[in-house]
Design a protein around this nucleic acid. Structure first.
Lengths: 353, 353
DNA sequence: AAGTCGTACTAAATCGTTTTAGCTGTGCTA
DNA sequence: TAGCACAGCTAAAACGATTTAGTACGACTT
């Protein structure tokens, strides 16, 4: 039997609920913090502690709702089980889906994450990573975000294209995507294909356009710069696609199809076209990109190049976790690529002529 | 002039870049951590430190890219400048917009936030808050989430309806919203109004339906339970609205308008109606709720009751920050309410008969 | 009867800061 | 010439955990 002597004169040091420290709990039990730590963490050293003591400890921990202070623990063990995630903004559909993927991969590993949006502001692009690093995140996942800092920790960039030491890019196979898109339109008979380029700040803008251009040229229908427009404005919304197509229509140039930078701009484009009395897809085909939620239920339902955004997020997270687990053994993959698929719905059709 | 003696024999203890501690830096400068801390934090006590020393310290901090370890600081000052945010899921448009509002309010206060999605799973509803509390968040913002834990810290619940001590609910003026919606449809001549109820897990489901029922009854056109359907399935997507209306149509009951639980289900409803050869709004009017991004550019553009989601997020954050700054002085507001507006677009029209 | 082993623990260092309480030397007053 | 203020620092405690290195005691060997 336990021969605990009541060391101190206080019989029951009433612990305030809500924030008991290990020391408090230990004092209450007349044991040392060490013992409690061993037992509560199931440390190897706890093997010599008799079951009865263990039970007492667990019971008290439950009774006072003891939760270890993660700050203290992390400081001591030099591990925070936390990563940082940087996105342009949350409500554009794109980042949110990637984040879902990230979270699903993290949760099984008991990691949490801190988030920040940079809204494409240069100062935030510099500042955010520092804020996260100060908070001792173990790594950073950036989504559609240029890396403006020296990566002093593992970084994974979803849709990143810059080759930077220590950064793994998770990217779509853009060449394949362009082939799928242009191939689809070409096979429907389209030869005058207008292209909506992304904003300058989107990581994919350049590659997307180059690969589309190459795919079109290959088929002998080079992209005409007169029917190429670039999205303006600093956030992704249907409005910018709408304006882009409006200005294109104003130019009077002919085209039978539009290959949009993303679904959101495709939706704006459709609005602009129908407002001008052009039917989609009868008069003009519109091809989107991404396959966000809204695409399937739009009217007309969007034909689009699907990016596996959820998977890209979870691949990013898994890749980061793997690097964190294995330590920096040099062999950081520069790039992981995923495949697009084309989802044919109602916004594209055979050319009517 | 400074008469620093080279205490130690090592002339230049080469500091490894990337993670210098205050102690390292202090050793390098032959000063104590205390002095550096004072200077770098602009503490009052730093007034007695000569400018030259201050300059040396700042220069060294910059040179070695010194960043204070936030874990250690937070542990010492008992303040983490971090809150937790709990959402059902990120990619439903709703939570993301609220989060944007939260973030904008937080960033000016130099707070960051940890996020978690519970996907309406009971275990996560219990677990997530604990994970956040362990990590010493100062408060929690829950979005459309039932509170399943004892609030031992300040909590703000966006769209919460349970009155719980220590929890501030940020809610829409639902009565007004129902008046706007039913009033609009009634004025357009609609008398047979179908209602799509939300899923059981949505906080707003009950109030929304009750207020709609009351507003309709008041006008002498009581809601008929035969043309009331409830969303099924465990995530918000157009599919569930689609199925709901499909089943309603199958019942053969007559109706001239649909008041949907949210925009997403309204979009699904429109799809179901048009598939059955009914035109929106000529044959059936469809009224949405929320005014998410997709609403304005849908075809037809959605008439909807707008919730100021961004504001609700920033109000939630501001209210939480205020409580954190002022300490727990008891007077916690039980409820803060915001006003809806009706955005009339193309999905509703005067009854054609 | 001394040495060894195992049980059941505890003391103290540590993580990286901040903060309280000093300490040392110089210049000036009384 | 002792006393005192002030400038310019430093030592050590503290935050709340984990972890290393013991200690005290009984039982068992040799």
């Amino acid at each position: 039997m336990a021969n605990r002597s009541t060391k101190k004169e206080d019989g029951a040091p009433t612990l305030k609920k809500g924030s008991v420290s290990l020391k408090d709990l230990a004092a209450h039990l007349d044991l040392s913090p060490t013992t409690l730590s061993w037992v509560l963490n199931d440390a190897p050293a706890a093997s010599s502690i008799p079951q009865e003591t263990k039970d007492r400890i667990h019971a008290a921990a439950a009774e006072f709702n003891y939760r270890p202070n993660y700050l203290a623990r992390s400081l001591r063990v030099q591990k925070t089980n936390t990563i940082g995630v940087i996105v342009p903004e949350l409500s554009d559909g794109y980042s949110a889906m990637v984040l879902n993927g990230v979270e699903s991969a993290l949760s099984t590993a008991e990691y949490l994450y801190l988030t920040g949006s940079h809204l494409h502001k240069e100062d935030l692009l510099q500042e955010l990573p520092q804020l996260l690093i100060e908070r001792q995140v173990e790594g950073i996942i950036a989504v559609d975000t240029p890396i403006r800092f020296e990566p002093s920790l593992p970084v994974v960039n979803v849709s990143g294209h810059d080759k930077i030491d220590g950064v793994t890019n998770v990217v779509l196979n853009h060449q394949h995507a362009a082939e799928l898109g242009i191939g689809h339109l070409y096979n429907l008979g389209h030869r005058r294909i207008a292209v909506i380029k992304g904003q300058e700040f989107s990581s994919d803008t350049k590659v997307r356009f180059e690969t589309i251009r190459a795919a079109a040229a290959k088929r002998g229908v080079p992209i005409d710069s007169k029917i190429t427009v670039q999205l303006q404005g600093d956030s992704p919304s249907p409005e910018v696609g709408y304006s882009a197509i409006k200005s294109l229509l104003a130019s009077g140039e002919e085209f039978t199809a539009v290959f949009a930078f993303n679904d959101v701009s495709a939706i704006g484009a459709i609005r602009a076209l129908t407002e001008m009395g052009l039917r989609v897809p009868e008069d003009v085909s519109v091809l989107g990109f991404d396959d966000v939620y809204a695409a399937a239920f739009h009217n007309p339902a969007l034909t689009t190049i699907r990016q596996p955004l959820f998977e890209m997020g979870s691949i990013a997270a898994k890749s980061l976790l793997e690097r964190l687990a294995n330590g920096a053994d040099g062999n950081v993959p520069k790039e992981v690529s995923v495949e697009p698929t084309i989802i044919v719905r109602q916004s594209t059709a055979r050319i009517s002529r």
